[in-house]
Design a protein around this nucleic acid. Structure first.
Length: 874
RNA sequence: GGAGGUGUAGCUCAGUUGGUUUAGAGCAUCUGCCUUACAAGCAGAGGGUCCGCGGUUCGAAUCCGUGCACCUCCACCA
């Protein structure tokens, strides 16, 4: 006892146990004859720092892994990081700028050298931080999406899909990020409501005095107008269709065309068409065969076609052009207007729709099997509502723009000859072979590789496959053993970016699913419901939280607030609860350890045997319920259940029952059973709070076995009878405590208890326990009501509490009257039901029988209370 | 504009195919206790128009319709 600290030292325990688990190699996995349970961690960006979202996500995964371990699975949780092409490149560019270096003045090789330098220095910080949370990751399997084997796999995939005809190169409208100078996929653009202006500009009609007015929010795109479009049925403009309009400033003659795409109600009902800079205009242009005039440079400035504006940013030109149009009297009016403006997810720059030559991947056919496996629940989504979302997206899937005008990433394995013909191959030599087939006198030096790299997600979608075939020697065995993985734990935001595409890749390349279950965690929000993010500054510093409160408390706090599939409202008050839970368990351990010196070799007494039997049943019951929660990924429910099992059932009831008094002893068997039970509770809790449970486990038992490796025992038959008896006992104890308090008695005032019950054996069995808990010097059966006593009605039993202390019956009378009123109302309801023929005819027999039982019970209780009242009021 | 979700105690949430004695927890609140593990505790209590309205049913927090409020995703009308 003396060597046990009064308080749990989380910092010390975390350091000690994590190191111990590492040293013992508990996190590492190799295929064996046990069933596998594998999870691939969603690789965080190398630029990332640990935030609350990661804490939730990784705690969930660690819980699943540790739980599976305790159930006998060979668990493998694979860590790693994602090269995150745009985010990392932006970061490196920024750092170079601080040093006064312009990316464009660096060769590709030099730039990549800087990028790798940065990656080596900072890229693994986030993984190191996960260790502080207690994550049981197999660090020997750490992967990075630009590792050599991974790089090769990505290239192979590209070539394969190209050869199968899925990948092609085409000029298309893309979302252009003028800051990162790259195309973006639709998924990388987000829309933000913005206060804009709607400019009404009149265009003169050629060879006519008429004019036509259009409305636009982007007047700078007037420079690229190649048509005016109206609705074919629009009476206002019908007569102008087929005529020419003159674009102001540039004085270009453009046709006036008709299309029912036009909304008659919006603006003036006439639309200026700029196929180069608007997706809808682009589609109109395709349909009507319009000229495409590109106005912008890649960096968002106006290009050389318009010398007077050349080199100025589009936003600046917007203002200048408005003035210029006003000067020539063709600006009719300006209105305030709220619209959605597309922004780049990475650089937050205003995205410009722009036509550019990009690589694309056809998705329609690839998506079909991936939709199928989710539809038929081969892959299960938790919560299942995301199935709808998934279906909706997969059924409307668009081709995927996979090229990015960046350097940090997997370089597209395509080479061009001097005439611009494309040769795709895994290596330049392979491409050259194809080149030679076409041109026998070709020189390999004529071939130039494509400058672009692939979208990050084009590598991420191979993650669950590629992490298990790291090197050729182990590949088949590992992949066959660990793939498909068990559960993917991720955020719903990346269901399209990543989840859908991993399923596609799995079906295409392994002809099977990459994971069996997908568990979507909620978004972590602050108390006010705002999403926690670095930019809002409302996300607490996780490492600091761990330092201050301990990793177990942090894990507790995010889990307890995290119902399956809902967003979590994070409140730091939960940390307090977690810490108090630590404290509670620590003290329970101290109590139990104290009993070591109070042991006596003897048979169990009545109290001990009842308590042990009851607690074991409680434990069995909880084990079953916990498994049920795990099956549905209701982790917060599981945690709440275990929390209450430990705090309420074990500490508040069991230990109090078991606790020997000052001069008393505890049977050795009871002491040992208590330790065994406690240890089982710790094992149940361990996945949620690994450090304190391991620490207490070792304090409790002197053996060398670690809790982390301990196996949960198989469920035994549940003793329902003892649970019922325990419940009744608790009801009696609570009722007496309440009665004492209501009657101004002290909790420890001595009483005598008499009972009228059909189940005398129950009282015989629990007599000692009752006496002990309610401070009764007598618990005896009686045949009729006792005078000068407080009456309590517990289920079908009547109890009479007597005391030497003067009792004011009025309080008890009031309580009984209240109860009576309620019971009468209740009985009325039952009687109404039972006198309803249609109820008797339609309801199931069990339900009807139950009503009869309720009726009988209630009537008995009412009689009983009436008798008591009559007696007490005398 | 399209789709999905949510609404239960002051707050965060359970509530399993409609029926189980007063709709449950935790936190917060109030009351009483320094009880030899723990005052970071113990014991007890109060607190609800299950969002509104309508329907189905013998019976609805639960199923259906509708309205309101909030949230998310998709689309992007210049």
């Amino acid at each position: 006892m003396t060597d046990i600290q009064k308080q749990f030292n989380s910092t010390e325990a975390e350091k000690k146990w994590y190191q111990h688990w590492m040293d013992k190699g508990y996190f590492n996995s190799q295929p064996d004859d046990r069933p596998a349970y594998s999870i691939v961690m969603p690789p965080p960006n190398v630029t990332g720092v640990l935030h609350m979202g990661h804490a939730l996500n990784n705690t969930v995964q660690d819980i699943l892994i540790r739980r599976a371990k305790s159930l006998g699975y060979n668990t493998c949780w694979v860590p790693g990081t994602d090269h995150a092409s745009i985010a990392t490149e932006a970061k490196v560019v920024e750092l170079l700028q601080e040093k006064g270096i312009d990316k464009n003045n660096l060769s590709r090789e030099d730039f990549l050298e800087h990028a790798w330098e940065w990656k080596e220095k900072y890229g693994n910080i986030i993984l190191e931080q996960l260790k502080k949370l207690g994550c049981s990751l197999d660090w020997n399997r750490t992967n990075f999406t630009l590792d050599d084997h991974y790089y090769d796999a990505v290239i192979r995939t590209f070539v394969d899909l190209y050869n199968k005809g899925y990948i092609y190169k085409a000029a298309r409208m893309t979302n252009w990020d003028p800051v990162a100078l790259t195309a973006l996929s639709d998924e990388e653009v987000y829309y933000k409501e913005t206060q804009s202006k709607l400019y009404y500009v009149s265009y003169k009609i050629a060879e006519s005095k008429e004019s036509i007015t259009i409305a636009t929010v982007r007047p700078e795109t007037i420079l690229g107008d190649t048509a005016i479009c109206v609705h074919p049925e629009d009476e206002r403009y019908k007569h102008l269709i087929g005529k020419k309009a003159i674009v102001p400033i540039v004085n270009r003659e453009v046709p006036i065309i008709a299309d029912d795409y036009i909304d008659l109600e919006f603006g003036t009902g006439a639309l200026k068409v700029t196929p180069a800079h608007d997706i809808n205009d682009y589609n109109l242009g395709e349909k009507h065969n319009l000229e495409v005039i590109n106005v912008l440079n890649d960096n968002g400035t106006i290009n050389e076609l318009f010398p007077e504006y050349e080199g100025k940013d589009r936003m600046e030109v917007r203002k200048i052009i408005v003035k210029d149009i006003e000067a020539i009297g063709q600006l009719e009016k300006v209105e305030d207007y709220t619209n959605q403006v597309g922004l780049s997810e990475r650089t937050h720059a205003v995205v410009e729709p722009k036509i550019s030559m990009q690589w694309w991947c056809k998705m329609e056919d690839l998506a079909k099997p991936a939709l199928e496996v989710v539809e038929n629940d081969t892959i299960q989504f938790f919560p299942s509502k995301f199935k709808n979302l998934y279906r909706h997206w997969m059924e409307n899937i668009q081709d995927w723009c996979i090229s990015r005008q960046l350097r940090w990433g997997h370089r597209i394995p395509a080479w061009y000859d001097t005439e611009g013909n494309i040769y795709v191959g895994e290596t330049k030599e392979e491409a050259f072979v194809k080149y030679q087939e076409k041109n026998s006198s070709a020189s390999i030096d004529d071939l130039k590789q494509d400058e672009d790299v692939l979208d990050t997600w084009f590598s991420s979608w191979l993650w669950p496959i590629e992490v298990f075939q790291k090197d050729v020697t182990s590949s088949d065995k590992d992949l066959a053993y660990y793939y498909p993985t068990q559960t993917l734990v991720t955020a719903p935001e990346i269901i399209f970016f990543w989840v859908a595409r991993m399923i596609i890749a799995g079906m295409e390349y392994k002809n099977t699913i990459p994971f069996k279950d997908v568990y979507f965690t909620g978004i972590v929000r602050d108390k006010e419901g705002k999403k926690m993010s670095k930019s809002l500054g409302n996300s607490p510093d996780l490492l600091q939280l761990i330092e201050e409160h301990g990793a177990d408390a942090v894990r507790f706090s995010v889990l307890i607030a995290s119902p399956a599939g809902n967003d979590i409202l994070y409140d730091e008050a939960f940390l307090e609860q977690g810490k108090q839970f630590n404290h509670k368990m620590w003290n329970a351990m101290r109590l139990v350890k104290m009993w070591e010196e109070k042991q006596e070799e003897r048979a169990l007494n009545d109290i001990e045997s009842f308590a042990i039997e009851w607690m074991k049943a409680k434990l069995e019951d909880a084990k079953e319920k916990t498994q049920n929660h795990f099956n549905h990924y209701q982790l917060s429910e599981a945690l709440k259940l275990i929390y209450s099992l430990i705090w309420d059932d074990f500490c508040s009831w069991y230990l109090e029952w078991m606790k020997p008094g000052k001069e008393e002893t505890i049977a050795t068997a009871a002491y040992q059973e208590s330790i065994k039970i406690f240890d089982e509770l710790l094992l149940l809790l361990h996945p949620f709070m690994p450090f304190i449970t391991e620490e207490i486990h070792h304090n409790l038992l002197d053996n060398e076995e670690d809790l982390m490796l301990k196996q949960l025992s198989k469920n035994e038959n549940l003793n329902k009878e003892i649970l019922e008896q325990g419940k009744k006992l608790q009801n009696i104890i609570t009722a007496i405590r309440e009665a004492k308090q209501k009657n101004q008695m002290k909790p420890r005032d001595v009483i005598q208890l008499y009972y009228i019950s059909k189940d005398v054996s129950f009282y015989e069995k629990t007599k000692a326990l009752l006496k002990n808990q309610i401070f009764a010097d007598k618990v005896e059966a009686c045949t009729e009501a006792i005078d000068n006593a407080i009456t309590l009605v517990i289920q079908a039993d009547k109890l009479f509490m007597q005391s030497d202390i003067e009792i004011d019956y009025s309080v008890q009378i009031e309580k009984l009257k209240g109860e009576l009123t309620h019971l009468e109302k209740f009985l009325f309801g039952i009687n109404k039901k039972l006198s309803n023929e249609r109820f008797l005819a339609n309801a199931k027999k069990e339900v009807v029988d139950l009503e009869y039982k309720k009726q009988a019970d209630t009537e008995a209780k009412i009689t009983s209370i009436k008798e008591s009242l009559a007696r007490m009021e005398n």
